[in-house]
Simulated assay, not measured.
Amino acid sequence: MSLTLSDIQHLYAAAGNALYGGEAISQREHALQAAWLAEQAGEDDALVIACLLHDLGHLLFEQGDDDLRQGLDDLHQYKVLPFLRHLLPDEVVNPIGLHVEAKRYLCQAEPGYAEALSESSRLSLALQGGAMSPEAAVAFAHQPHAQRAITLRRYDDAAKIVGMVTPEFDYFLPRLAALAK
């Protein structure tokens, strides 16, 4: 199966109000904040759109807000890839697929990173395998798109601000359409 731009827009409109994994904001707010923070920092269009869509798998596979507390990892970062590969370039898709591994990498590579994660991110980290080993971290850092995934991860971590004002989803549609294959 593949997604269209209309499908993506519909998913955020229909399911985007669901709470974001134990945080006090919605899935849509989280996506918009991540993309807006990336844009404000001057990131390229591909990374802005990767930030916008990085958790699309949660919406596509209907992860419930309570799933983390029940010990369920929906593997959203992997399951969404076949739905996006035909539509968007690797510069968008690959960082999405690596953003959870980037969290695990940063827990190994950056002192204090794990402690700074939100409670929900620490809970999901445990389900996702915890911090990488030093050897795995070296291997991760040498993958194509690893640095972009790390950058996406930092916007992901920051995009949990209750009441943050961002543009609406449609604001990002021209960029998304320009990147579509």
Results as ranks from 00 to 15, higher is better:
Leu127Cys: 03
Leu127Ser: 02
Leu127Val: 04
Gln128Tyr: 02
Gln128Asp: 06
Gln128His: 05
Gln128Ile: 00
Gln128Met: 06
Gly129Leu: 02
Gly130Thr: 07
Gly130Phe: 05
Gly130Met: 11
Gly130Lys: 07
Ala131Gln: 01
Ala131Gly: 01
Ala131Asp: 01
Met132Thr: 00
Met132Lys: 00
Met132Asn: 00
Met132Pro: 00
Ser133Pro: 13
Pro134Leu: 12
Pro134Trp: 08
Pro134Glu: 10
Glu135Asp: 14
Glu135Thr: 14
Glu135Asn: 12
Glu135Gly: 15
Ala136Cys: 11
Ala137Phe: 04
Ala137Ser: 12
Val138Glu: 15
Val138Gln: 15
Val138Lys: 14
Ala139Trp: 03
Ala139Gly: 07
Ala139Lys: 09
Ala139Cys: 07
Ala139Pro: 08
Phe140Cys: 03
Phe140Asn: 01
Phe140Gly: 02
Ala141Trp: 03
Ala141Glu: 11
Ala141Arg: 13
Ala141His: 09
His142Leu: 14
His142Ser: 15
His142Trp: 08
Gln143Leu: 15
Gln143Phe: 08
Gln143Glu: 09
Pro144Met: 06
His145Cys: 08
Ala146Val: 14
Ala146Glu: 07
Ala146Phe: 04
Gln147Pro: 01
Gln147Gly: 06
Gln147Trp: 05
Gln147Leu: 10
Arg148Lys: 13
Arg148Tyr: 04
Arg148Val: 02
Arg148Ser: 14
Arg148Asp: 13
Ala149Val: 04
Ala149Ile: 03
Ile150Asn: 02
Ile150Lys: 03
Thr151Asn: 05
Thr151Ala: 13
Thr151Val: 07
Thr151Tyr: 01
Leu152Ile: 04
Leu152Ala: 04
Leu152Met: 09
Leu152Ser: 04
Leu152Cys: 04
Leu152Tyr: 02
Leu152Pro: 02
Arg153Asp: 09
Arg153His: 10
Arg153Glu: 12
Arg154Gln: 11
Arg154Ile: 02
Asp156Glu: 14
Asp156Gln: 12
Asp156Lys: 07
Asp156Ile: 11
Asp156Ala: 08
Asp157His: 12
Asp157Pro: 03
Asp157Cys: 14
Ala158Ser: 13
Ala158Pro: 01
Ala158Asp: 08
Ala159Glu: 08
Lys160Phe: 10
Ile161Ala: 12
Ile161Trp: 05
Ile161Lys: 11
Ile161Gly: 03
Ile161Gln: 15
Val162Asn: 11
Val162Ile: 12
Gly163Trp: 04
Gly163Asp: 12
Gly163Gln: 07
